[in-house]
Design a protein around this nucleic acid. Structure first.
Lengths: 210, 210
DNA sequence: ATTATGTTGCACACACATGTGCAACATAAC
DNA sequence: GTTATGTTGCACATGTGTGTGCAACATAAT
């Protein structure tokens, strides 16, 4: 029981590892500890100074990512279920850089359970949205609510995991996909997005400008 | 240069390995050679008598699977693009047992390329369908044809890989998902499937009957 | 019944990843 | 400038998977 205060550079290195792990694991969920450490500019041995375990590192990543997810889910307040869903998809997409690894890891047997637990609030929010949308007739009713909720989750996960986050209309694509799955025709979705241009805003604008 | 005729039991064992590999890899794309061989009732050593390599085994699986895929794609003749897409999805689904591993493997870095090559005909068929559907106004036009084609592929792959093939309305779910992505409203898709009950037929009927 | 063909278990070499112990070295904090 | 804190490289043990060689054994085909 001495100083207790972590050194400043150590704090930064820890953060750097989490950062490197995010991108490395998004590209390859089986990225080795060594690859992660090196891509953070540190040695493998040092990483073990910050995290007990490969598992501990990943668990921390999941927890952090889930917090962001859940916070967003709980911040959506639109009365219109279609709007709420669209906004949820768009907001989540903006976090893509922080969550892409999660979308990939969520498929890994070893972490499904933990991920599912951590994302329970988000899942509840989606379930509520679906129920609401089905009740007011704006979402499809040919599928049972739990089925539709799961389908929306899976499709969203796929789009996040399999789309280059930096590409042009990526956010727009994600939103339209989710709305289509919810049962809207594309014209309906299109009208919705036109009427509410704030939703798919801020798609990473500058690209080819060099 | 002697007999050249493979022994009957050896032929059967080879087929058994391919079969076991299909199911084992569908569950876990990293299933070990040993697990595959054992689940075929053979020893690891024997497997190497039939296949040079882990890679050789997987490549053969991909080729066989792709042949079935492609044959189906080329057998679809409906003039109506919506119908054609629906039927394609349904027919592919019926092959789920033979292709689920492919849907999973397709994500594995090591085999993406080979898989993509093998599935070129299917991909071309989908591209043609999308073009046709967009031209006659039955598919969405808010996304460029290549984007839409890729999206349909990805979503179909996800549904195949992430749905219990034996579950009740699985085939129906797959078809409806694809149609929604193509831009149909759920009511439109519903009407289409009602008008053509032959499409989503033969969903593995008997389940709970024990 | 003989024989070519398959199968099996075992040992081996190899590669790669995880996690730990330790001594040498750096440097942020004071 | 001293010192507690952090970093590094190296060796090591461990575990898991791949692919091969070989001798003993089984059996389909004739």
């Amino acid at each position: 029981m001495t100083t207790r205060t972590p050194r400043a550079d150590a704090r930064a290195n820890r953060a750097g590892i989490l950062d490197a792990a995010r991108t490395a694991l998004a590209a390859d969920p089986y990225a080795s500890i060594d690859v992660i450490a090196r891509s953070a500019g540190l040695s493998r041995r040092t990483l073990y100074g910050h995290f007990d375990d490969r598992d501990a590192l990943i668990r921390e990543l999941i927890v952090i990512g889930a917090q962001r997810f859940n916070a967003i889910a709980e911040s959506i307040a639109d009365a219109d279920a279609r709007l709420a869903l669209a906004r949820l998809a768009a907001r989540l997409w903006q976090e893509a850089a922080h969550v892409q690894f999660a979308a990939v890891l969520a498929l890994d047997e070893a972490h499904v359970e933990h991920t599912a637990d951590a994302l329970a609030p988000l899942r509840r929010a989606v379930a509520g949205l679906v129920r609401r949308g089905q009740e007011d007739g704006s979402f499809r009713t040919d599928l049972a609510a739990p089925t539709l909720a799961r389908l929306i989750e899976e499709m969203a996960r796929t789009v996040v995991a399999r789309t280059d986050a930096a590409s042009a209309g990526a956010a727009d694509l994600a939103v339209r996909t989710v709305l289509s799955i919810a049962g809207l025709s594309w014209r309906e979705a299109d009208a919705l997005l036109t009427a509410h241009p704030d939703i798919a805003l801020a798609s990473n604008a500058a690209e080819g400008a060099a």
